[in-house]
Design a protein around this nucleic acid. Structure first.
Lengths: 218, 218
DNA sequence: CGGGCGGGTTTGTGATCACATTTGGCATGG
DNA sequence: CCATGCCAAATGTGATCACAAACCCGCCCG
């Protein structure tokens, strides 16, 4: 355990804890982890080739964002959300996403819509291939591409913490219902964007969000 | 530095990093810290009688919530918000708080309103005494008492991170304008609650939030 | 055959240390 | 008087260790 004493610094790499954080964050948000999955300091450390200290910081950061759950004894797991909690998080999405979409609408140009179109095709492919992680990833990227244009970094930041909390659950839901049909309301979103129709866009975003998550609830 | 080797454990105290976190969080949210205030690991550690490790975890957690800002070199300070950012955070409050109030309205009973009345009187006292920290504290407690009834823990959690981000700025604003007049719209909020008027409550909350922060913006 | 109890193992917590980078201020030179 | 370079102090980062609590699993007793 002494082989990495010399860190060949090429160009000031990002800190180790940040690398660990980003890796885990992506795993959580994209649904690569199942709800209830346990994460240990030494396990994460070994996985990323670092000691416990950076692993601890990464986990602390993620739990602070709600991406992970801290048990009373300090154990860290991916969250197992109650149906009430899922419902509430969906309502938060339904509150924030139309607002972000509406703000983005004024600034949306054609290149943006084209880019969303491309992402949406990748999303359809992921559905056809039954690839849950890729489905979640492209779906979030579709939405984020739009919301980035809203120029509201704080609101987008809040929304991303909501996505983080839903990550493992979305994965579980997806593998449970195994949909093979096309993505539901993305076409409506794109049409509203092209038409510059604010009300239609808000509605399409809201239904896309609530529809996607209300399929379980039982 | 070896005097605390024996930790007289009486009844399983909370972890040190949590104690540090709570202390700092309250300082930030209540505006006890000025924007741009620097916090060092060793300084925090000495202040709370712990080593760097718990201090680091507390700071990491707070920066993850947006309560503190991390410079490129890893230094931690309280945030100095741009006017745009203040405006955006106010808009988020204006989006979340009417929603939370509306949800609480159905479940609000007289005892709750009485309690808010008491808090509001303490708030008026703080204004009269020109006590910014106590003003901010009672003002937030007034709102939180209402929102707790909404039974929407995730949404309230998001809102609290917004409050956290605004904490130092609210302090700076308060000491800058030194208002001595009564709190603006709290009476309207209480009246709407008593009347069970959803629309009036939403409006009163929204204006209370935006009014309070739009006084600077320069 | 089921449930409580034990003990080895795993795990989080906090302290400490070495190290590289950054910072801040002061002297020097223009 | 201001800019610049330099050095000591301050600071964040990551590794390692000791320790107590929690956990897990199998054994034994009822």
């Amino acid at each position: 355990m002494v082989e990495t004493l010399v860190r060949t610094v090429t160009a000031s790499e990002p800190p180790a804890h940040d690398r660990v954080y980003r890796g885990l964050r992506q795993q959580v948000m994209h649904g690569e982890l199942v709800p209830g999955q346990a994460l240990t300091l030494r396990g994460i450390g070994k996985q990323y080739g670092v000691s416990m200290t950076p692993a601890r910081e990464a986990l602390r950061r993620l739990t602070a964002e709600g991406a992970l759950t801290l048990s009373a004894s300090g154990r860290v797991t991916t969250p197992e959300l109650s149906n009430d909690r899922i419902e509430e998080l969906a309502q938060i999405r339904a509150l924030l996403e139309p607002e972000l979409g509406s703000r983005a609408l004024r600034r949306a140009h054609l290149a943006l819509i084209d880019r969303m179109e491309v992402i949406n095709e990748a999303n359809a492919r992921a559905i056809h291939l039954q690839d849950p992680v890729e489905y979640i990833r492209t779906n979030l990227e579709f939405h984020r591409t739009l919301y980035l244009r809203a120029q509201s970094p704080a609101m987008l930041g809040l929304l991303e913490t909501v996505w983080l909390q839903l990550g493992p659950t979305m994965r579980a839901l997806y593998t449970k219902l195994r949909r093979t049909t096309a993505p539901p309301h993305h076409r409506l979103i794109l049409e509203a964007l092209r038409a510059g129709d604010d009300a239609a866009l808000r509605l399409a975003l809201r239904t896309d969000v609530t529809q996607g998550l209300r399929h379980l609830q039982g």
